[in-house]
């Protein structure tokens, strides 16, 4: 009971700080804060079609965030999740391009799912291998590989996979409708993608909180020096965790390609990997809040699209609110820890 009350006060404090900061900022640029918040809300939850758009953002964001949770359990900062998502998209595009001339689209969609996840996992394993064998901190390995992945996508779009005629930033040749991620008629968001995400959520809950594997991951993360005493190899568990992380990010990238854009574009990841890191930080590395925070962030992203039209404000307000939330959370958690430390 006390813990629940503590969490509630934390949430209220964080929300209060964010509202205060954002209102101050809006007031400084001479925009009415209330109207801006109203627009954000109406833009994301105002109608069914807008809400489906929110869900379309929620799916990849949640997948990335849950992937990150695995890596964080072993104490790894998988900042390369952005690049892993991009590689997943590349893998999916590779499979779907092969399927363009064939008669069995479902086979190639399945192949895209697998190749996306595998390529994402391989890209993550590369970062993990650099960390374990090369001694490169995973933040710098991951970041470096993110930029390399960006370069790779641009090269693919402008080189081997360029659209017939002229290559441009608008991406590769769009896929025929049979190769789109399956959905039901009338649904703007694929129920299968939602089901997949929910399955990943439930499975992760079981793995991370209930299974022996999850416990071992945490043991490795809490104390990599003590883990070998129990016969656990920190290296193997770290690699496994980062591979799962990359596979889920790759899955998100695959869904972006086959479900949303239906082609490979330069900004295929939409920054969801980095945003996922914020989600997990705001959740204080716990599982339960992640889907809800991801929904909140997705709503902000979608809701802010209309701000330039409605109020001549830049749509990056959503990013400001997201960043401010994490900073407030870090402040609140830090102060709480300071108080706990004093009380001891």
């Amino acid at each position: 009971m006390k813990r629940i009350r503590q969490h509630l006060t934390d949430i209220l404090l964080i929300l209060g700080l964010v509202l205060l900061f954002t209102s101050l900022l809006l007031w400084m640029v001479k925009a009415p804060p209330l109207e801006a918040f109203q627009n954000l809300l109406a833009g994301s939850f105002g109608s069914w079609s807008r809400f489906t758009r929110v869900l379309n953002v929620w799916i990849p964001l949640t997948l990335c965030s849950f992937g990150l949770l695995y890596a964080f359990r072993t104490g790894l900062w998988n900042i390369g999740v952005e690049g892993q998502m991009v590689l997943g998209a590349v893998g999916a595009t590779w499979a779907l391009r092969m399927g363009m001339e064939s008669g069995s689209p479902l086979l190639y969609l399945g192949l895209a799912l697998v190749s996306g996840a595998v390529l994402g996992a391989l890209w993550a394993l590369f970062a993990g291998w650099l960390k374990i064998r090369g001694g490169v901190h995973e933040i710098f390995a991951g970041l470096g590989l993110n930029f390399v992945a960006m370069g790779l996508v641009l090269w693919l779009i402008f080189g081997p996979w360029k659209r017939a005629g002229i290559a441009s930033m608008s991406g590769t040749q769009p896929f025929p409708i049979e190769l789109w991620f399956p959905s039901l008629p009338g649904w703007r968001v694929s129920p299968f993608a939602i089901a997949l995400t929910v399955a990943v959520i439930l499975f992760s809950f079981w793995v991370l909180n209930r299974s022996r594997f999850g416990l071992n991951l945490e043991a490795v993360g809490r104390n990599p020096r003590a883990a070998p005493l129990y016969g656990l190899s920190p290296r193997q568990y770290m690699l496994a965790a980062i591979a799962i992380s990359g596979a889920l990010a790759g899955l998100a990238g695959m869904l972006q390609v086959s479900g949303i854009y239906h082609r490979l574009i330069p900004a295929i990841s939409s920054g969801y990997g980095y945003l996922g890191l914020l989600v997990v930080m705001l959740a204080n590395f716990r599982l339960l809040p992640v889907p809800f925070i991801a929904l909140f962030f997705a709503a902000l992203n979608v809701g802010s699209i209309q701000l330039p039209m409605m109020m001549q404000l830049d749509s990056s307000l959503s990013g400001v609110i997201q960043g401010a939330s994490v900073m407030s959370a870090l402040l609140v958690f830090g102060l709480r820890r300071l108080r706990a430390g004093r009380a001891e």
Binding site: L278, G319, V326
Partner: peptide, 15 residues
């Protein structure tokens, strides 16, 4: 640092 990276970038674009 990472949270501030994203926050400052968006703050710069917004303001």
């Amino acid at each position: 640092g990472f949270a501030l990276t994203l926050l400052c970038r968006d703050l710069a674009y917004f303001a």
